[in-house]
Amino acid sequence: MASGPNQLSRFNVTALTAGLAFLYLPIVILIIYSFNASRLVTVWGGWSLHWYAEFFHDQAMIDAAWMSLRVGATSATLATILGTLAAVALSRGAGFRGRTLFSGMLYAPLVMPEVITGLSLLLLFVAIDAERGFWTVVVAHTTLTMCFVSVVVQARLGTIDRSLEESAMDLGCGPFRAFVAVTLPLILPSVLAGWMLAFTLSLDDLVIASFTTGPGSATLPIRIYSEVRLGVKPEINAICTLVVALIALVIVAASLVSKISDARGKTAAPL
């Protein structure tokens, strides 16, 4: 009996299962072994929360995690503001001079290798004699994530009926007031989704942060990498599991925000 066009064949199911296993089986194993009571990473010694307690008593790891959260929140906020303004400029200012150059420079980090971005920022900070630390990492992560925010917001702006803004300006609003009163509420879910994406990318970054960080400002990925070079400890599994849980919460929140944005887009889309 032939399968219909919407039915999965045995080959497709096998390929999908193999692909999902390749992506997620290592994460599942990591999560399981984070509850391992044994000091040996590859030897199962029963269920235990001991390594989670070890993490919360490891002040160096706590400081690195707090640094990552501070850098992620600050850089995501700056990237969201700048990325939203850039998206508005590209969507509403289609005819300004230098638009192609501006667009190319804005989206360059999307395709630029992170090692090139990190090295170029390092050379910039050295040239201006900037002390590397918290703010240099924030600037670097803002540079990295701003383009992602711009992509998300610009896509949302393209679905909004511009007659809504024009009607507000016909009723006496200036361009800025019309944006704040009409456009911003409509694109707010996309702005929030862009913030969450920027925060996740900042929290995950190792390469660029390793170029731009300084003494006393190591992020969690840098700290984990330095520990892993000396051998994987069970505590690392616990830390990574907590990061996975945090990222999962951010993804769920971003999905909910995206659904709200799609619902608003259907009501505000041009006929």
Rank of each mutant, 00 (worst) to 15 (best):
M1K: 06
S3I: 14
S3V: 12
S3L: 15
S3R: 14
S3Q: 13
L8T: 09
R10G: 15
F11N: 02
T14W: 11
T14Q: 10
T17K: 06
T17C: 13
F22Q: 01
L23T: 08
Y24V: 00
L25M: 01
P26G: 01
V28T: 14
I29S: 01
L30H: 07
L30S: 05
I32C: 00
S34I: 03
F35M: 04
V41P: 02
W44F: 06
W44R: 05
S48I: 00
L49S: 04
H50E: 13
F55K: 12
A60Y: 14
A60H: 12
M61C: 05
M61L: 13
M61P: 09
I62Y: 09
G72M: 03
S75H: 07
L78P: 02
L78D: 12
A79Q: 09
T84G: 09
L85Q: 00
L85D: 00
L85M: 06
G93W: 10
R99G: 13
T100M: 14
L101C: 12
A108H: 12
P113F: 05
I116N: 07
T117G: 12
I128M: 14
I128G: 10
A130I: 02
A130D: 03
F134C: 04
W135M: 00
V139A: 06
T142F: 13
T142L: 14
L144V: 07
S150G: 05
S150A: 11
V151Q: 09
V153R: 02
R156T: 03
E165L: 06
E165K: 01
E165M: 06
G172Q: 10
C173R: 05
G174R: 08
P175Q: 15
P175V: 10
A181R: 11
T183S: 04
L184K: 02
L186R: 11
L186K: 08
I187H: 01
L188E: 01
S190T: 07
A193M: 12
W195M: 10
T200F: 04
L201A: 11
S202C: 03
D204P: 03
L206Q: 09
A209P: 10
F211P: 08
G214K: 06
S217F: 12
P234L: 02
T241R: 02
V243H: 04
L246H: 04
V250K: 01
I251W: 03
V252T: 13
A253G: 11
V257E: 05
S258G: 05
I260A: 08
S261V: 08
R264F: 01
A268W: 03
